[in-house]
Amino acid sequence: MDRVDWTSWRAVLFDLDGVVTPTAEVHMRAWSEMFNAFLTNDAPTLPDAASADLSAYTDADYFAHVDGKPRYDGVRDFLMSRAILLPEGTSEDPGTELTVRGLGNRKNDAFNAVLARDGVTAYPGSVELLDHLRELDLPLAVVSSSANAPAVLAAAGLADRFRCVVDGRVATELGLPGKPAPDTFLHAAEALGATAADSVVLEDAVSGVRAGAAGGFGLVIGVDRGAGPDTLTRAGADLVVADLAELVVPATGGAR
């Protein structure tokens, strides 16, 4: 498949971080700072420290254990990969608390500080595709594991482009499991009056691509921001692009 006929679809579902906005880079920095501070300062004091892997957290850890997942799931999966056991805690735990949810909240604090300081600008190619789909009057949704999706969309000036936002807070309120489960995508498609079969999913994370494939969506497009085309294809992407501008179909026909 080398082009997309957008008029064949009834809804388009976008992941946010790494697809519409480069906030994945902000998330990656926040995760790295949080986990490396934890591994250096906190983990050595734990009872199981001698049997745990306390080597530095890397980008490879991000893609393998954190990328695209709900925040607490990312914390839990990374700690498991290092044989580190922490109590679950509660969502109200402060970032100073050595619990799964405390670490997740510590990371969220770091992300919000960077967003407030630096803001965020959407990928130009993504805005180009959003403009094109607006001309076609296709209903659009954001489906993000982040609890910060509305704030990011507002900071990027794109809040009015999407009829529906299903983020981490919505998923928690509705009891929807996060990616790689397809439930959040399925909920967004239904909210837009569409089915999975007539909806398109755009994702940069392996877990998100897997969610689209598991949900039986009609077209799953992988956006390669670092995971690699082969990895996204193996996860279930029908098509992989490096930039969403590649998906804009000019008036003369054919993908650019």
Rank of each mutant, 00 (worst) to 15 (best):
W6L: 12
T7R: 13
F14S: 07
D17V: 01
D17S: 02
T23I: 09
H27A: 05
M28K: 15
M28W: 12
M28T: 11
F35L: 15
L39T: 12
T45L: 14
L46W: 05
A49H: 14
S51F: 03
D53R: 15
A56L: 14
T58G: 01
A60F: 07
D61W: 04
Y62K: 07
F63Y: 12
G68H: 00
R76L: 13
R76Q: 13
D77Q: 06
D77P: 01
A83T: 09
A83D: 11
A83G: 00
I84M: 11
L86V: 11
P87E: 10
T90A: 03
T96D: 13
G102S: 01
D109I: 10
D109P: 04
D109G: 09
F111W: 11
F111S: 04
F111C: 08
N112K: 10
R117E: 15
A122E: 13
A122I: 12
G125E: 07
S126E: 02
L130I: 10
R134W: 13
D137T: 14
V142A: 06
A147T: 15
A147F: 12
P150C: 13
P150K: 11
V152N: 14
A155P: 06
L158D: 14
L158T: 14
F162L: 02
C164P: 05
V165E: 15
G168H: 02
V170S: 00
T172I: 10
L176S: 06
K179S: 03
T184E: 10
T184F: 10
L186Q: 00
D198K: 03
V201G: 08
L202Q: 04
V206A: 15
A213L: 00
A214W: 01
F217N: 04
V223L: 05
D224C: 03
R225I: 04
T233M: 11
R234W: 03
D238F: 03
V241A: 00
V241M: 05
A245Y: 06
A245D: 13
E246N: 08
P250E: 11
A255G: 13
